[in-house]
Simulated scan of single mutants.
Amino acid sequence: MKVLIAMDSFKGSISSEDGSRAIALGIRDVYSDAEIIALPLADGGEGTVEALVKATGGKSIKKEVTGPLKEKIDAVYGILGDKKTAVIEVAAACGLPLVPSDKRNPAVATTYGVGELIRDAIDKGCREFVIGLGGSATNDAGVGMLQALGFIFLNSYNEEVGLGGQELSNIRKIDLSSVIPELKDCTFKVACDVNNPLYGPKGAAHIFGPQKGATAEMIKELDKGLENFAQIVLQELGRDIQNIVGAGAAGGLGAAFAGFLHAHLQSGIELVLEIIEMEQNMQGVDFVITGEGKMDGQTSMGKAPLGVAQLAKKHEIPVLAMAGCITEETAILNELGITSYFSIVNAPMTLEEAMDSTVTSENLRTTTKQIFRLIQSVK
Rank of each mutant, 00 (worst) to 15 (best):
R104W: 00
P181G: 15
L222I: 14
G113N: 08
A121T: 07
A204F: 15
L98W: 12
I219F: 02
A216D: 15
N170T: 08
E167H: 02
G225W: 01
A191T: 05
G203K: 00
K173P: 03
Q231S: 15
I152C: 15
P100K: 12
E159G: 07
Y157D: 14
D223A: 04
F153W: 14
K103A: 10
V114C: 00
T111C: 07
T110C: 05
L183S: 10
L163S: 14
I207D: 10
R119N: 07
A205N: 00
L163M: 14
F208K: 02
Y157N: 11
S156Q: 06
G142M: 04
H206Q: 10
G134K: 01
G134V: 03
E182I: 08
G142R: 01
D123L: 04
A141D: 04
F229T: 08
A191D: 06
G113L: 09
L149V: 12
G200I: 01
A191E: 08
E182Y: 06
L154I: 08
M218W: 05
N155L: 15
K202R: 14
G203V: 02
V108Y: 14
L117S: 09
L168D: 04
I171E: 10
F229M: 08
E159D: 12
D223F: 02
L176Y: 01
F153R: 14
T215D: 11
G209T: 00
S178L: 01
G213T: 02
G200C: 00
C192R: 13
K184V: 13
N170P: 04
V108D: 14
D175M: 09
D102I: 03
Y157E: 15
I131P: 05
T215N: 09
A92G: 07
P210F: 04
N170F: 09
V108F: 14
G209D: 00
L176I: 04
A121W: 09
S101G: 09
D185S: 15
K103I: 09
T110L: 04
D102N: 07
L168S: 02
T138P: 13
E159L: 11
I180R: 02
G203Y: 03
L226F: 01
G209F: 00
C126G: 05
N139I: 06
C94S: 13
A121F: 07
M218F: 08
G113H: 09
N155G: 15
I219L: 04
Q211D: 15
E227L: 11
G213A: 03
G125S: 08
E159S: 11
N158H: 01
